[in-house]
């Protein structure tokens, strides 16, 4: 075995640090993960050695990302009024609940008002009855009070009273 042969063997055994087996920049290319080799690119956009097709794909992905962002923004814009509407509904429900809670108080107030009105009307009825009783009392008019402004009832009562007085006078005359 010659020196060259030895050298060849050594060269085959010791890998030269300057030799490059592949042009891939993937640092995990030679690493084995349980028999699977990762052949993808970790940083596609940062890879200076990628082809135009890859760059175009990345552009498309960026565009799609921007579209997705726009769509999501659009969705956010749409969702805001819905959120506001929901807030309004919630507020109105709260108001309704508070109104329902205050219903018994209002009912009490209404019942108090009704009872007050009834008592007032009863008092008015009492006053009315007093007036009627006052009407029933015989009102004898003076000679100056006897005119067309006087009520028929008063004139009638005065006439009846005068008849009684006249009858009493006749009786007293007969007795005398």
């Amino acid at each position: 075995m010659g020196i060259r042969a030895i050298g060849a063997n050594i060269a085959s055994k010791v890998a030269s640090p300057f030799t490059r087996k592949t042009t891939s920049t993937n640092p995990f290319e030679h690493n084995s993960f349980s028999g699977r080799v990762f052949k993808g690119s970790a940083l596609i956009s940062a890879d200076l050695f990628q082809t135009k097709k890859i760059k175009e794909a990345s552009k498309l992905k960026m565009m799609s990302a921007s579209v997705v962002a726009a769509v999501s923004n659009f969705g956010h814009r749409i969702s805001q009024p819905i959120v506001n509407f929901a807030k309004n509904v919630k507020a109105s429900i709260n108001n309704t609940i508070s109104a329902i809670k205050s219903v018994p108080q209002k009912v009490n107030e209404i019942s108090k008002n009704v009872s007050n009105k009834i008592s007032e009307s009863l008092n008015l009825e009492k006053l009315h009855l007093h007036k009627e009783e006052a009407k029933d009392i015989v009102k004898v008019l003076n000679l100056h009070q006897i005119n067309t402004k006087a009520s028929i009832a008063d004139l009638k009562n005065t006439w009846l009273e005068e008849n009684k007085i006249e009858a009493a006078r006749k009786v007293s005359k007969e007795v005398a």
Binding site: L143, T148, I152, L155, K156, W159, E162
Partner: peptide, 26 residues
């Protein structure tokens, strides 16, 4: 009686139709 005469004359001039029934009654 002067008062009764006055009452009868007043009822005769009264616009209320109830006066007629009082005149008839008394």
């Amino acid at each position: 009686n002067k008062k009764i005469r006055r009452i009868i004359e007043t009822l005769g001039k009264h616009e209320d139709t109830e006066a007629i029934s009082v005149l008839e009654e008394l």
